[in-house]
Design a binder for these strands. Structure first.
Lengths: 153, 153
DNA sequence: CGACAACCTCGACTATGGTCGAGGTCAAGG
DNA sequence: CCTTGACCTCGACCATAGTCGAGGTTGTCG
C-alpha cells in the first residue's frame, strides 16, 4: 500500500477530470487552479483540484467565462480546503445566473413567436431588434445573454 | 435628381442597422451579405440587406454562430427577394434552437438544485458533470457515468 | 475646382479558450 | 544504467468575431 494517491500527477488529473493536460496548465496560468511541484519541477495536484475543475467546467456549461469563474473561486477560503457549504454557496450563485439566462431566452422565444406571426422581421418595427439595450456591447456569440429584452412589447 | 434610396451606402446601412461598417465588411467577407459596387468600387446595398442583418443579429442573440447563420441564409432563394414566409421559415427554425437551449439550461438548473442539496459537486458522481454531451474525451479508466449524486456521498 | 467626408484594401491586433510542437528533463521498470 | 513515457517551458498557432490604422480613392457640396 505504498503510496496513497495523496497528490495527483497532471496526467492523472487529466484522466480523472476529462480536462486535457494542456487546459490544466492553461487554467493554472490563469490562476484558476494551483499545484505544488516536486523537486523535479513536476506538478502535483491535491485531490481537491478535481472539485475545482468540476466547478470550472460546469460553470462554463452555464455560460460563464473563465474570468467569471476566477472571480467566483477567489471567494473561496485560501486557508482551508473548501467545504461542501463553500461549494454550495458558489453553486447557488449559478442558480441566479441560470434563472436569468433561462428567463432571457424564454422572453426571446416568446417575442420570436409573435414576430413570426407577423413576419415583421424588420430592424425598425420588430421588438426583437429594438431592445434598446447595448447593441454594441453584446459580444460575440452567446456568452453573455444580457438581461436582454426587458423592454416590454 | 432625387435619387431614390434604392441602394444604400455602407454608412447608411451601418446607421440604420446599428451594425458597424467594419462588421458589414466582415459579414460580406464571410458571405453573409452581398453588395454591388459603384464604378468607383464603393459598396452599394439593396434595402433587403437590412432584413438580412436583422436576421443575422437576432440569430446571434439566439446563440447561433455566423457559420450557422450562413448555412441558414444559404437556404434562401437566390433568384428572388426573400418573402415574409421565407424569413418566417428561417425564424421558426430558431424556435427549435431556442427550445433546445432553454431545455438544456433548465435541466442543468434542476440538476444543480439537487446537487446543491448534497454538496456533491464531484467529477465522478455528480450528474452535472456527466451531462450527456461533450465527453468524447471519456477516459477508459474512470467510469464517469454514475447514477446521480442523490445516492452517493 | 477644391475641400473634405466617406469610402476602399490589407494587414495587424484584440479577446477568449484553448491546442500543438520543439527541445529538454524526470522518474520508474528491466 | 538505460530506455521510455510522462512531464517541463515557451512560443506559435487555431477558431470566432470582430476592430483599428495606414495609405490611397471616391463622391458630393459649396
Amino acid at each position: 500500500m505504498s503510496k496513497l494517491p495523496d497528490m495527483l500527477t497532471i496526467g492523472q488529473v487529466a484522466e480523472r477530470s476529462g480536462v486535457p493536460h494542456t487546459a490544466l496548465r492553461f487554467y493554472e496560468e490563469r490562476g484558476l487552479i494551483g499545484s505544488e511541484r516536486t523537486t523535479g519541477n513536476q506538478r502535483r495536484y491535491a485531490r481537491s483540484v478535481l472539485r475545482r475543475l468540476a466547478f470550472i467546467r460546469t460553470a462554463q456549461r452555464v455560460g460563464l467565462s473563465l474570468e467569471d469563474v476566477h472571480a467566483a473561486l477567489a471567494t473561496l477560503p485560501d486557508n482551508r480546503t473548501p467545504t461542501k457549504s463553500d461549494w454550495s454557496r458558489l453553486s447557488a450563485s449559478w442558480q441566479t445566473e441560470l434563472d436569468a439566462r433561462i428567463d432571457a431566452l424564454v422572453r426571446l422565444r416568446d417575442r420570436l413567436t409573435s414576430c413570426i406571426g407577423c413576419g415583421c422581421l424588420s430592424l425598425r418595427s420588430c421588438t426583437l431588434h429594438n431592445f434598446e439595450d447595448e447593441q454594441a456591447a453584446d459580444g460575440p456569440g452567446a456568452p453573455k445573454l444580457k438581461p436582454a429584452c426587458e423592454g416590454g412589447t
